[in-house]
Design a protein around this nucleic acid. Structure first.
Length: 311
DNA sequence: TACCAGGAGAGCG
DNA sequence: CGCTCTCATGGT
């Protein structure tokens, strides 16, 4: 357990009517090898914005501001919090990163990627938000995905409390909500041809045809097959949701960047067939193949520069 | 301007 | 199976 209580301070004591409670607006966690900027900005989550030295975002129904310095990660919220599990789970603060890195294959590409992306982590996002976000991601640049999701949340999400002086914020809209938004209205969020995919997938989940909670309990191949039934969900998007949302460590999304990495670094001669490639990604990278994938992705996207701050 | 973006689905041979 | 085309939008 790398998380330890350091400080809790009530920013607005008058608002806390229970003096004995451990309610707090802020909390610090000790961390090691946690590159917050790389993690929040590496194309796995799309709702984090840099503000000064920190990042603000929405996790579930919580507005939160994160800041990391000197192995201390500080979180500030809009309302007092007693149970911080929603955040420690999202940030995966209990993960033993060294053990994960040690499970990677010891080959030149992985050594380079790990060396260039020190402290890069995988988040554990809400499965629905993650799945929906990646339905909206197809053939879009990360900056645009952020814009689409920001508009979607502003138009159809529920307002969440924010500290005084901060702009309004909204939760990610539920499947039930999006199931009842017509396609034209979704297209107003600039999601284009992805609108019917998002709507129909939301309907399937809201109607119980697909049970995301059940998917989480399935073995990986069955979970993947279940997600592939949804409209707008192919192998790449399914694996993104399985890895970033459901926590399947073996899911290995292959997008254009990862494909570039695999071809350049592992198959420089001839291009492998898709089945050959899937066999390779499923066997070569070990127990935490998905984690290795994220290192390759970030390594390629940043051109091998460490401490990158992509916009 | 041309090309590209964390793709999927459908049609074709 | 593998190839090609379309879908919508905006960044670089």
């Amino acid at each position: 357990m790398a998380v330890s209580f350091i400080a809790s301070k009530s920013v607005n004591a008058a608002a806390c009517d229970n003096p004995a409670a451990t309610h707090a607006f802020a909390r610090a966690f000790s961390v090691r090898d946690y590159d917050l900027a790389a993690t929040l900005n590496s194309g796995q989550a799309f709702r984090w914005q840099p503000h000064g030295d920190g990042w603000t975002g929405i996790v579930g129904s919580h507005w939160v501001r994160l800041e990391a310095a000197n192995n201390v990660l500080t979180a500030r919220t809009a309302r007092p919090v007693t149970d911080w599990t929603w955040l420690t789970h999202y940030l995966q603060l209990d993960l033993d990163l060294a053990a994960v890195l040690a499970s990677f294959p010891d080959d030149p590409p992985m050594r380079s990627a790990v060396g260039a992306c020190r402290g890069l982590r995988l988040l554990r996002q809400d499965p629905w938000e993650c799945l929906a976000s990646f339905i909206l991601s197809s053939t879009k640049q990360i900056v645009q995905i952020r814009q689409i999701i920001a508009q979607l949340c502003e138009c159809h999400g529920e307002p969440v409390p924010v500290p005084d002086g901060h702009p309004p914020a909204h939760s990610f809209p539920s499947p039930a909500r999006l199931a009842n938004v017509d396609e034209a209205e979704l297209r107003c969020c600039k999601m284009g041809f992805r609108a019917p995919y998002l709507r129909e997938t939301a309907r399937a989940i809201a109607a119980g045809q697909c049970d995301l909670a059940a998917v989480r309990e399935m073995p990986l191949p069955e979970a993947r097959a279940e997600l592939l039934k949804l409209p707008g969900v192919g192998p790449k998007i399914a694996d993104c949701a399985l890895l970033f949302g459901f926590g399947f460590a073996g899911a290995f999304p292959v997008d254009v960047w990862v494909m570039r990495a695999l071809r350049q670094l592992y198959f420089p001669r001839r291009r492998p067939s898709r089945s050959r490639l899937q066999h390779f990604t499923a066997t070569h990278f070990g127990r935490h193949a998905g984690y290795a994938q994220q290192y390759l992705f970030h390594y390629m996207r940043t051109g091998g520069r460490s401490g990158s701050s992509l916009g």
